[in-house]
Amino acid sequence: MTKREAVFPANRHALYEAHGYSAAIRSGDLLFVSGQVGSREDGSPEPVFEDQVRRAFANLHAVLAAAGCTFADVVDVTSFHTDPENQMATVLAVKADEIGGPPYPNWTAVGVNWLAGFDFEIKVIARIPPAGTDDGR
C-alpha cells in the first residue's frame, strides 16, 4: 500500500489549520491538491473577483512547487464557480495567463451556490516528476 504524505507550501494560509485539511497529498507519483481559493494568508478572501482568481492560482502554484511540480505536471483540473455565467470570461482570461499553451490538462467546471465566502475554487491532480529529471520545463 502506498503511503500518503501531506504537502504544504512554505507560507501556509490559515484555512488549512482552521478547517483541518492538507494543502495536498502525495501518494506514489501522484499529487492530489485540495481546492485552492483566493485567500490571503489570514484566510480572508480577496474582495475583487479577478484578484481572487489570480490569488487562487498563486496558492495553487505554491502547493505544486512544494511538491516539486509546476502546472505542466497537472493532468486533471476541477474548478468551482458561484456564478459561472458571469465569471467564466474572467476565469478563462486568467487561466490563459496561468497555465500556458497546449497540451492542456482536462478541466471540469462546476457551478455551485456556496464556497464559504469565496467565488472561485480550483483543485488539481498532478503527476510528480521523478527527482533529477529534466522534462523540458
Rank of each mutant, 00 (worst) to 15 (best):
E121S: 15
R127C: 13
A56P: 03
G68R: 02
R26G: 12
A24T: 11
L31C: 11
V110Y: 07
K123F: 10
V33T: 09
G38Q: 01
L31A: 09
A67E: 09
R54A: 01
D29S: 14
G35A: 12
A96F: 12
A66L: 04
R137C: 11
G43N: 04
V33H: 10
A18M: 13
R137Q: 08
A23C: 10
F32S: 07
T108G: 06
H81C: 13
Y21P: 05
F71I: 11
T70P: 02
V94P: 03
E46N: 04
A131W: 04
E46M: 04
S44R: 01
V77R: 01
V48K: 00
V63C: 06
A96Y: 13
A10Q: 10
G117W: 05
E50I: 06
H13D: 15
D73M: 04
F57P: 02
T78Q: 11
F32K: 03
E5Y: 05
A65M: 05
D29H: 12
D119F: 07
R127M: 09
H13F: 12
S34F: 13
P129K: 03
G20T: 00
Y16H: 13
V124P: 02
A72H: 08
T78D: 14
I25T: 12
A131F: 04
H81P: 14
P9T: 05
F8K: 03
Q87I: 12
D83S: 14
K3L: 06
V53L: 03
E17Q: 11
E50N: 02
I25A: 08
D76F: 12
S39G: 08
V74T: 10
K95M: 14
P129L: 05
E98N: 03
R54W: 02
H13T: 00
D29A: 13
G68D: 08
G68V: 09
A72C: 10
A14W: 11
V74Y: 01
V110K: 07
K3M: 05
G117V: 05
N59D: 00
G35K: 06
V77F: 00
V48H: 00
A66Q: 05
N106D: 00
H61P: 02
W107C: 12
R55P: 01
R26E: 15
T2N: 15
S39R: 02
G136D: 15
V112T: 14
D51F: 05
Q87R: 09
S22M: 09
Q87N: 13
T90D: 09
I128E: 03
C69H: 06
R54D: 00
S44M: 00
G111S: 15
K95D: 12
E50L: 04
Y104L: 15
G101D: 10
V37R: 08
T90C: 06
E50R: 09
P130C: 07
L92Y: 14
A66I: 00
P129W: 03
Y104H: 15
M88F: 12
L31P: 04
S44P: 10
R54H: 02
D135L: 06
H13V: 00
R26C: 14
A23L: 05
A109I: 15
F71Q: 06
F8T: 06
Y21M: 10
G43K: 00
Q36Y: 08
N106E: 00
G136A: 07
H81A: 12
T78Y: 10
V110L: 08
I25Y: 08
N86P: 13
P102F: 12
G101W: 06
P84W: 11
Q36E: 07
A18R: 09
D73S: 12
V74A: 01
P45S: 01
C69G: 10
F57D: 01
